[in-house]
Design a protein around this nucleic acid. Structure first.
Lengths: 157, 157
DNA sequence: CCTTGACCTAAAGTTAGGTTTAGCAATTAC
DNA sequence: GTAATTGCTAAACCTAACTTTAGGTCAAGG
């Protein structure tokens, strides 16, 4: 097995991060890591890539897409091994985005109160009607329009 | 165009919710709504389905999968049009799940502090190392193992 | 009558984030 | 030196949540 001095093999990286070999190759294809190749054409990784992949895993847990993670990782220097300062600078950006995400959820949750069961669910003045701050969420998500006046069917049982 | 008295057509529902017709059919296939058919075989929806679809859209914004949403909607009565009480009961369950989600994110965020740049990122005692409470998150997500001692490359620049 | 527009079904395509498979090359272990 | 690992690529497959396409039907207007 390729030992550390000339870089880590993909198998070692896999064993030490818990990621599948196929996942690591997939991440390379998406430019999250940039291994070099040895004389035989096999991938060789820096020890710093362990940390990089750890970060990928954490950020995914937080619900970030690989695209966003790539953006964040782009904050790390390319030419040299990232220092502690490099990592904390990047983490600051990460935390900001994370806080923003949590804030959106909380704001929506607060708007939710009383809005589901009551008539306002359907009226233009319902606080859930026009959740501007979610518009930036990921994916081609739903368009979020509320309609239908409650009518008699929702009158007190 | 089919008017309200004998139910709403899929086109009307689409226009009033903002959902694509194809999406509504897709939701029917996944049992989120159960329209009946008119004599010509066309779908006809209850006015209450507008509310149902609104809920689907909201819950998706909160990051719930259609499967979870189906579960939640199952809390509404099948035989009759849901009353306000039915909706609020369901919303209570929804809020609980939502609060749980937010709590997980917050807990992780708090653990994150200081963990990215420092050496602890790699040590077994790092608080991010074993985030038990995220294990239940959706999908076959990452396995979340941290490795690599920082070593000299992370020493002060 | 005949055209137009809304609707129908079934199946294939799409994106994200991977995994699996097939067939072959490089390394490592004995 | 040879067998067993491990790695390589390319392409197919997988789930979620839809959209698109293809080919056909239904209902209303002129």
């Amino acid at each position: 097995m390729a030992k550390s001095k000339d870089g880590l093999s993909i198998g070692e990286l896999s064993a030490r991060t818990g990621l599948a070999v196929s996942a690591i190759r997939c991440y390379e294809a998406q430019n999250l890591i940039r291994p070099w190749r040895n004389s035989g054409g096999q991938r060789r990784f820096q020890r710093a890539d362990l940390r990089r992949l750890s970060f990928v895993m954490i950020a995914q847990k937080f619900g970030f897409s690989l695209g966003e993670i790539r953006e964040l990782l782009a904050g790390l220097p390319g030419g040299r091994t990232p220092t502690k300062a490099d990592w904390t600078a990047m983490a600051d950006e990460f935390r900001e985005r994370l806080d923003a995400r949590i804030a959106v959820l909380e704001r929506l949750r607060d708007r939710l109160d009383g809005c589901i069961g009551c008539g306002c669910l359907s009226l233009p003045n319902c606080k859930l009607y026009n959740p501007d701050d979610v518009a930036a969420e990921d994916g081609p998500g739903p368009r979020f329009v509320m309609e239908d006046r409650p009518g008699p069917e929702i009158a007190p049982a």
